[in-house]
Design a protein around this nucleic acid. Structure first.
Lengths: 168, 168
DNA sequence: ATAAACTTTCAATAATTTTTGAAAGTTTAA
DNA sequence: TTAAACTTTCAAAAATTATTGAAAGTTTAT
């Protein structure tokens, strides 16, 4: 396969993955484009490359910066802003894990905690089932939380080394 | 907090989590409802409880069965179908992991493999960057795949025991 | 101070996803 | 076979989410 075709295919695939994981297609595609680009690109170049509007490009780039996945770069003597992606895939995974933990897991843990305090007739099967479910989910969520916490601090080789060794 | 209020809050929260993870809100809410219900419920009861239409309930229940998260049950002497959710949270996590692995991760691994075979001028920075990105993503995806594979086979206590011990 | 170069905003529009509900289909019992 | 009880389908409508593009805003150089 030729590079040009492969690039298109990668951008498409990354966009699809993104949308399956609740990240909007365009955002994932812009990220893909920057990920495989050796040079930082301008808004203009991104718009053209992906056939998206200026407004869309601007918002998407802003979001990607918010996720910590790309950064702005300024070139000496130029007014234009350039954007480039962190190419370290482990950093990307960690960054995504970090943001989703903060944005999603933590609020869930908070709600689960509140729900643990439900009151009522302790003989009521409805209450018994409810409490058991909440307790189980709570336990799972806490284990996930701890594992992510470790992942965030860990180096890639150490992390996978440890996990895969245990599972051999 | 009273049980009735807690149930509503849980259904809402589970729905929100679902939609953040690309599962549609209603599907997650129906799952939540069945998860905290000690008895199997009919389509009718689910419709009423969540204020959704018959068509929606039917499709959603079908999807949940497809994900292996709920099952049909028949009660002796009754024509109606009852639905109930597996209450084992570890099974749920495994089931979701299994389906997403099959539906999403495996196709991605396939595409990444094809993209590894890209050809071109080996001195071209574009090609070098592309190949490096693909190789790195490939490695990460394979590690995730192996870990999920282990998770699918594992008992909950063993799994978390192993992971959390390593990370202590 | 002005204008060119560039970035951001946001109301309107488009695209996508979800939901409805009535009609069609199926199963069971008599 | 008929009809009641129940389930499934799917075209149309509603809701949600993403995108556009022109106008407003900002920064820099002169």
């Amino acid at each position: 396969m030729e590079l040009a075709a492969a690039k298109l295919k990668f951008i498409e695939a990354w966009g699809k993955i993104g949308s399956e994981w609740g990240i909007n297609r365009t955002m994932a595609q812009v990220h893909a484009l920057l990920l495989i680009s050796p040079e930082a690109l301008t808004t203009e170049e991104i718009m053209e490359n992906l056939s998206i509007s200026r407004g869309n490009a601007n918002m998407t780039l802003r979001d990607l910066i918010g996720w910590g996945l790309i950064e702005k770069q300024h070139k000496a003597g130029e007014r234009k802003e350039y954007f480039f992606a962190d190419k370290d895939v482990w950093n990307i995974a960690r960054q995504v894990a970090k943001e989703r933990k903060k944005r999603e897991l933590e609020p869930v843990l908070k709600v689960l905690n509140e729900l643990s305090a439900v009151t009522g007739n302790e003989k009521d099967p409805e209450l018994i089932t409810f409490k058991k479910s909440i307790a189980d989910i709570n336990k799972l969520a806490n284990n996930v939380d701890k594992t992510l916490e470790t992942m965030l601090k860990a180096e890639e080789n150490w992390f996978w080394g440890s996990i895969l060794k245990v599972f051999k």
